[in-house]
Simulated scan of single mutants.
Amino acid sequence: MEHVNAASAPELERTLLTCLRSPRWSRRVAEHRPYPDLASLLAASDEAAYDLAWPDLTEALAAEPLPALAPDTYAVAHTALSAAYAAYEARFGHVFVICLDGLTPDETLDHLLQAIRSRLTNDPEEERAVVADELRRLATERLIDTLRGAGL
């Protein structure tokens, strides 16, 4: 935590933007330092994410990559997933986001297809809530990975 607390605000905000492409979120997390421990940092991250308005989330969504399958997955699976992504984007106007933390590569395809099918039945307001939750989960996962990998 000392690296997070000691980093300059611009440096920390740049690092945080790799976790969630929301300048408002990264500023809020950086501004609430010092953090006594990881749990406090993650709680602040969640709180900042919960406070994001839809325009902030849309900004973050614009930079989100689509979840990918392992390269050795059958071509027909890639085709099915591409069609599902296209249907989702046509319905909601943004990329499909989902946190796949804890899934094995063998579980990914079925989980993605099931989630897209299920979420396509949501009305736009329901889906906004799901998207916000998935972005928070992704930010948490990426923040933990960043802290492990960058020595922050």
Rank of each mutant, 00 (worst) to 15 (best):
G149I: 09
T15L: 13
A44M: 10
R117I: 07
L57S: 01
G149K: 12
A77M: 09
L103T: 07
D51N: 15
R137M: 03
A7N: 04
L42K: 05
T18E: 12
F92P: 06
I116K: 04
L120N: 03
A60L: 02
L16Y: 02
H94D: 06
A129I: 15
L61S: 03
V76E: 14
A70I: 05
V97C: 00
P71I: 11
W54A: 08
A115H: 07
D110I: 04
Y74F: 01
T104V: 02
L109N: 01
D145F: 13
P34W: 12
R28D: 08
S118L: 14
L17K: 06
L138E: 08
L20T: 11
E125I: 02
A139V: 11
E2F: 04
W54M: 07
L120I: 05
A48V: 10
Y88Q: 03
T15M: 12
L61M: 07
L120G: 03
L16D: 03
A9Y: 03
A80L: 10
L100A: 10
D110L: 08
P10E: 08
T15P: 00
M1T: 14
A77D: 14
H32E: 15
D133I: 01
R117Y: 08
S118K: 12
E59P: 06
P10Q: 10
S118D: 15
A39N: 05
S8R: 12
D106R: 13
L69Q: 10
C99D: 12
A77F: 10
W54S: 05
E126M: 00
A68N: 09
C19R: 11
W54G: 01
A70L: 11
L66C: 02
E64K: 04
T18W: 07
H111L: 06
L143E: 09
